[in-house]
Amino acid sequence: MFAFLYFTFWSILLLVVEVLLRSAGLTVPLLGFFFAAAAVAVSPRMALGFALVFGVAMDFVLGYVMPWDGILLPVLTLPVFFLHGKQLNSDVLEFLAGAMIPSVVALPHIWTSLTTPDGFASLMMSCLFGAFLFPVTLALVARSVSRLQIGAADAGKGGV
């Protein structure tokens, strides 16, 4: 129950912040970072479900006909199903995962990003930014989860 409330609160808040940042011209995939981190630190299954629902919600809020984020955000939570806990403690892997998240989120518009100078520069900046932000998000989520005593038992099976 606590895990569900935790996911709901952060998903609604981060969606609002991400959409407002996008409206200001900044693409920072906060929901992507959160779901990828929550999949590792809390529960991959719950992260997958919330990523699907809030990905679709974000697409609809921004007026997209095709819910791309509803497909791509759940993808960010999938690698944790194939990895073991020890592998996720590697700093290099965390940096790499963080750098990958913005490029996965930008996939529907990758052609525009790669063909225009501004788009390519902004994608590179996002990847660099993501490489540093993801380990921080992971640490914050892990710490808040342990403080709130939201464990794998509460979140259902699958906590790493």
Binding site: G25, T27, G63, P108
Partner: peptide
């Protein structure tokens, strides 16, 4: 009230 950088010139809310 809302715009997305990837579709900045194509649509808004």
């Amino acid at each position: 009230i809302l715009r997305d950088p990837s579709t900045w010139s194509e649509q808004f809310v």
